[in-house]
């Protein structure tokens, strides 16, 4: 198992998701990362396209018996992830 934490430090929204997804896919496919932790410190917004990036990354990691964890989500983002039931797919931590 190879573990990595990344912190995008900007909102995960439609305008940046294509590049963000590519970066995450490269980590999994090229670097062989199987335990990926995404630190949302400084992230104030995640939109539906951003949520899709988390699901796509979770799906890719699951195929490799890996794991996605999200940490340091704001109260609003944590609530959005739970409302959209993303917490049923991978771990999300607030604060």
């Amino acid at each position: 198992m190879s573990k990595k934490t990344i912190a995008p430090r900007k909102d995960i929204v439609a305008s940046m998701v294509a590049d963000f997804k590519k970066e995450l896919q490269n980590m999994i496919v090229e670097e062989g990362i199987t335990e990926l932790e995404i630190d949302l410190s400084g992230v104030e917004m995640v939109d539906s396209v951003g949520l899709g990036a988390f699901i796509a990354t979770h799906n890719t990691l699951s195929q490799k018996n890996g794991k996605l964890t999200v940490i340091h989500a704001t109260e609003d983002i944590f609530s959005l992830f739970k409302t959209m039931r993303l917490d049923q797919h991978f771990e999300i931590h607030q604060g």
Binding site: D47, S48, V49, L51, G52, A53, I55, A56, N59, L80, T83, M84, R85, L86, Q88, H89
Partner: peptide, 15 residues
């Protein structure tokens, strides 16, 4: 569909 990576926008607006 919770497993798809798209199709949540309208649901968010409704919610």
């Amino acid at each position: 569909d919770d497993t798809q990576d798209h199709g949540r926008g309208l649901q968010i607006m409704k919610l």
